[in-house]
Design a protein around this nucleic acid. Structure first.
Length: 941
RNA sequence: GCGGGAGUGGCGGAAUCGGCAGACGCGAUAGGUUUAGGUCCUAUUGUCCGAAAGGAUGUGGGGGUUCAAGUCCCCCCUCCCGCACCA
């Protein structure tokens, strides 16, 4: 491009860059986006929004990756920024800040690769992110930026951990309470101890064990997800359906290991029920509901010669149809149940070809354990299992039913044992067919039902045991359930029960780069909370911070925590109130999710050294807006991938803090909005290798790199796919404002869409036209006139103001921008731009393109930033059209048009319409004429 | 398999309450500006028939309700997401 023909005052990328940097500096200097707190050091009574209605806008804070940002990353941040800027102009006190989720696996892996300390790389990445985000003109309150790796921050993460550790869930009260109150109840005898002995009769160790069993954070020895490739254990939520780690895609194995758990299951009901209070996308709520997986049913005991087998069933009404039982292979009763020899008459098919039941069970267990989850899934069609040689008694029929083990029953759900009712359960039906087990219908299928298992509603049949005082016949499923549960409870054969799919949250990781636990162990190995004054427990420096990782397939390897190698840190002498003693520190660290469970609250009061957040400030920014309101962040924007992980964990922590009286809101995020993703095309050559996407051209219906035809695929943007486009490139080529407008205009924020660099120019042209509406690009002089606008332009302006306001409130930025383009196109035709249009146009453009808007606002004669300028308000009188054009349909097709005064009577519209289509009617008399006021006229012949 | 979401021009999308389908942008075509390309400006641009006027047709497919359906109802197809033997 030669400079010669570009008008000297045109809005070019170079000018945009100059304007943008100038305004970014000024905003920073003036603290333009500082939001005043009601109290504390961040209070500011002189602030234009002090005491105004508050609005807390939040982004899911990023993990600062070493790869930097691509154009997809800031989509949500720009969206919240446009929303926040609009709301500020609309009069609200808006809190919008950005922090960094900087602990976690990827930081550590990257550090391992580059050989530098995770803190060094993480801090450098954060700096780079900050610079990149600043370049986009995001209006964040910089004073409130926090990073989870700051000791000032994780000191409070540890503090909250201690609150959870020092709490138990009181089921009667339906909330968490301090452990001290539990001990007091035991001590005064108002709460019986588990084994009934008086509290005073328990040894110190026994008391501690009882209390530890109640804690919301506890150590357990249980099967966990061990991932040798990552050298750490993982939460259920971090393991994919095919048994691999969500991060790194390594195999995950079940191992019995001692680990920290969080009793999130205690909150199952509230996490489920409170979803109804939230303004969240329904799919996300549904995913949480499914993940929690509450099932109502009953526990039923089936006696056997050795011990009763307790099953969980959602269909206790079908117990008369229970013709066999199945235990998970790992079920604890299997070993005691199995006799030394097959009972007389055992069918060959049930034995798996083994001479005795012990061998058969042993072989089946071995085979099941050797299968990967993928293999298990592949074989789900074919039911396998083996007879244990034992029988149980059906408590309602008194019949003897065989007990099998089979891997279609999961150890981890319910009781790990089921009563099998093939007639009313498809899985049981399949198993019954394979093993030729009896099938007894206990629900009458409807006439003509030709399926196998019938799981629908219907009258109970074959379900009476008069000698036991039980008769379900004729009852519907719901009635029969109620009747049988009452019977089970009366006779002591079981009781109504609720189970959850949700498991307790595995909270420890065998890594370096995370929050240390504020926990030490005494000589007896008991976990002891460090007192608050000893926080933070700082992450110690180590020579080798990389965790020990293993052959990803080595299921028998054992985790080794990096912190355990620092013996001088692990072994510590402390005085915890009873004199100096030797203690051993916990060497696990917290999972990545810990910091994100509460970070939004630290934004509210980032400098507070006495509390994680001041109560006043929490109540102002997040408190309930009335009776029954859950409170929380007013708008939380982020990707749907956190549907169950982060969002469930954060809700759980928040509820614990609420129960303990530390916060006034009982949900952290009142409104959730899932932004879509920016996707991209990638191209591969004949060998399948990725080629640089920016060099590929489309022609003749194909894609070519030079003369070579290449394949197109659609998906993520990534370095290895050679299709990355960065915000920096876009800022350099067009300016940040153009980039922002493009991202907001390319579609609704919640929808994923492909990136198209060549389309960015459309937004560039739009801003150039806005610029030209105010500035003569040849002379640099103002093109704004103080003469009034013509009627048409004025009406257009007010229609646009009205529409844009509505769109902004509803987060429909793409249509808001379309309206602004219409308005701009409307004034570019004019020889001069009336001030009454130019000013509102600039103000309305400001949320999307804040830099150019500030610049033009200044050129319009305003010395101060437009951050707190009033967003334009439409004049209702100008929204009402003087005349209305009605399309006139005849038999559903538009045959004419009439223009009538807006206040024309219906009869007048009707006759004008008939008049307009008189030729089409050709003398025929309409059977019906429908006038829809202000819409259309429909004539039916 | 179960649950959820979505299918509209060459492309991204609009149509908010059942009321003129395709706003706005990209691309394409033509013209203006320019030495030229690019930029910028103007116009056209769903498809088919037609020189035009105009007509027909059109929102994944098939039925239906209605004066009127992208929108409501029934059946089917495709794609995306979640869960995955959860008793």
């Amino acid at each position: 491009m030669t400079e010669v023909d570009v008008p000297p005052f045109r809005y070019t990328a170079a000018l945009a860059d100059q304007i943008e940097r100038r305004w970014q500096d000024r905003w920073e200097r003036e603290g333009a986006f500082h939001a005043p707190n009601p109290s504390g050091p961040l209070a500011d009574p002189a602030h234009p929004r002090s005491g105004a209605e508050k609005l807390f806008v939040l982004d899911m804070f990023p993990y600062p990756s070493g790869a930097g940002l691509h154009v997809g990353h800031p989509l949500g941040y720009i969206g919240t920024d446009c929303f926040a800027r609009y709301q500020r102009m609309a009069g609200r006190n808006v809190l919008h800040a950005m922090g960094f989720d900087a602990f976690g696996l990827p930081a550590e892996q990257y550090a391992v690769q580059t050989g530098t300390h995770p803190r060094t790389t993480t801090v450098a990445n954060i700096d780079r992110y900050r610079a990149q985000l600043r370049r986009l003109g995001l209006a964040h309150d910089q004073r409130r930026s926090v990073a989870t790796i700051d000791t000032d921050f994780y000191r409070w993460t540890q503090w909250i951990f201690l609150q959870i550790f020092d709490s138990w869930y009181d089921r009667e009260a339906g909330r968490a309470r301090p452990v001290s109150e539990l001990i007091a109840e035991f001590a005064e005898g108002s709460r019986p101890t588990p084994d009934g002995r008086p509290w005073s009769g328990l040894s110190a160790a026994e008391r501690r064990a009882v209390v530890d069993d109640h804690r919301l954070a506890y150590v357990s020895q249980a099967p966990v997800n061990w991932c040798p490739g990552l050298g750490t254990v993982l939460a259920n939520e971090e393991v994919t359906a095919d048994g691999r780690s969500e991060r790194g895609n390594f195999p995950v194995f079940k191992r019995n290991l001692k680990q920290w758990m969080m009793r999130i299951t205690a909150y199952g009901d509230r996490l489920l029920d409170d979803l109804d209070k939230l303004d969240w996308p329904e799919p996300i709520k549904l995913m949480q509901r499914n993940w929690i997986g509450r099932s109502h049913g009953a526990h039923v005991d089936f006696p056997t010669p050795v011990a009763a087998i307790r099953v969980f069933t959602t269909r206790p009404d079908t117990v008369f149809g229970a013709t066999y039982m199945v235990l998970a292979p790992e079920h604890e009763l299997v070993d005691t149940l199995v006799p030394s020899a097959w009972p007389a008459g055992t069918r060959q098919a049930w034995t798996g070809g083994h001479a005795g039941p012990r061998e058969a069970v042993e072989a089946y267990r071995k085979a099941a354990a050797a299968k990967t989850d993928v293999e298990r899934q592949a074989e789900t069609k074919e039911k396998t299992g083996v007879f244990t040689g034992a029988y149980a008694t059906n408590p309602v029929t008194g019949g003897q039913i065989p007990i099998f083990i089979a891997d279609y029953v999961l150890a981890g759900y319910g009781t790990g044992a089921i009563m099998a009712v093939p007639a009313q359960d498809e899985r049981d039906w399949e198993f019954a067919e394979v093993f030729e087990l009896p099938i007894v219908r206990t629900v009458q299928p409807p006439e003509g039902f030709d399926g196998r298992a019938y799981t629908g509603d219907g009258p109970a049949v074959n379900s009476a045991a008069p000698e036991r005082g039980l008769d379900l016949d004729g009852l519907s499923v719901a009635e029969a359930k109620a009747r049988i549960i009452a019977w089970l409870e009366e006779t002591g054969n079981g009781q109504g029960a609720v189970t959850y799919r949700l498991r307790d949250w595995l909270f420890s990781r065998q890594r370096y780069w995370g929050e240390p636990f504020p926990i030490v162990y005494d000589a007896d190995g008991a976990a002891i909370a460090l007192p608050e004054e000893m926080l933070p427990v700082e992450l110690p420096e180590v020579d080798d911070f990389s965790p020990r990782t293993f052959d990803p397939q080595d299921a028998d390897s054992d985790p080794e925590t990096p912190l355990s190698r620092r013996r001088d840190w692990v072994e510590v002498e402390l005085d915890l109130g009873d004199g100096p003693k030797r203690y051993t520190r916990e060497t696990n660290v917290m999972p990545q999710w810990a910091g994100s469970c509460w970070y939004e609250m630290r934004y509210l009061d980032p400098t507070n050294g006495a509390r994680f957040v001041d109560a006043d400030n929490e109540r102002y920014w997040m408190g309930p807006r009335g009776e029954g309101d859950c409170g929380g962040v007013d708008l939380y924007v982020g990707g749907a991938e956190h549907a169950v992980l982060h969002l469930l964990y954060a809700r759980f922590w928040h509820k614990v803090l609420y129960d303990l009286g530390h916060v006034s809101s009982f949900e952290p995020f009142r409104r959730l909005f899932n932004q879509g993703y920016i996707q991209a095309y990638a191209y591969t050559d004949a060998r399948g290798a990725y080629v640089p996407a920016e060099e590929v051209a489309e022609r003749d219906g194909g894609w070519f790199l030079g003369d070579v035809q290449v394949n197109r695929e659609y998906g993520k943007m990534g370095k290895s796919l050679k299709n990355v486009v960065t915000p920096d490139e876009m800022c350099a080529a067009y300016g940040a404002d153009t980039f922002r407008v493009y991202e907001m205009s390319m579609g609704p924020l919640e929808v994923s869409r492909p990136w198209e660099t060549r389309a960015v120019v459309g937004s560039y042209r739009f801003l150039q036209r806005v610029w030209r509406a105010v500035v003569d690009e040849r002379t640099g002089e103002s093109r704004v006139t103080d003469d009034p606008a013509d009627e048409q332009t004025r009406r257009l302006l007010h229609k646009v103001i009205d529409g844009v306001r509505g769109d902004m409130e509803q987060i429909r930025f793409n249509t808001a921008i379309a309206k602004l383009i219409e308005l701009t196109n409307g004034v570019t035709r004019l020889s001069a731009t009336p001030r009454e249009v130019a000013e509102p146009l600039v103000l309305m453009v400001a949320p999307f393109a804040p830099h150019i808007a500030e610049e033009l606002w200044q050129r319009l004669g305003h010395p101060t930033s437009l951050t707190y300028a009033d967003f334009p308000v439409a004049d209702p009188a100008l929204l009402v059209a003087e005349t209305v054009t009605y399309p006139v349909q005849v038999n559903g097709k538009v045959r004419g048009r009439i223009e009538v005064p807006a206040d024309a009577a219906e009869e007048a519209v009707r006759s004008a319409a008939l008049n307009a289509v008189v030729g089409v009617l050709a003398g025929r008399e309409p059977r019906k004429v429908i006038v829809v006021p202000a819409r259309m006229v429909s004539v039916v012949l």
